[in-house]
Amino acid sequence: MENPNCQQVINLLELYINGKLSPILANAIEFHLNICPKCRKKYFELKTEINNVKDKPKIHSNRVERQIEHYIQNLSAYIDNELDDKDNIKIRKLSIVNTQARQKLEDILYFRQMLQNSFDKTKNNLKKDYSEEIIHRILNSGRKRINSEYVSLVISTLFLIFWSIEILYLYN
């Protein structure tokens, strides 16, 4: 099978993910995944599904596992520097002595970096400049306010003049 089609690739995906294909076939699948976005999407979906089944949480019973659980709960606040001194020390200590914990710390730091890079990229994707439009709207609303204040001043002055004329007329 030199060039497998999409259907064949999808049928073989599970074996490919579990590493049960011959190297030649695995290479052919890999080549196809590199050029076919639809199959690659299917591949990621299936891989996530398989990983989820493999990684189902086990019952944490011993002390180290409880420590790891506490570690995971507080790791997020730790990298944000939002923990109190006592918990900070606990996290730091476990990061040094436990490889699993250290891996989790490295993973979350890498993940945070990935989000930061994504955010930076999005910021640079802004095509429109809003500044002139905003200033224009503010100046316009300011003018309208001044105009309406001016109109009400004129109306009240006119009213006052009429009222004075009427008073004068009555007295005369």
């Binding site: 999005t122 910021k123 640079n124 802004l126 400049d129 809003y130 500044s131 905003i134």
Partner: peptide, 13 residues
């Protein structure tokens, strides 16, 4: 205007 220019990327993101 300059303040908005500098802040708009953040808000947009």
């Amino acid at each position: 205007e300059e303040l908005i220019k500098q802040e708009q990327r953040n808000v947009f993101a």
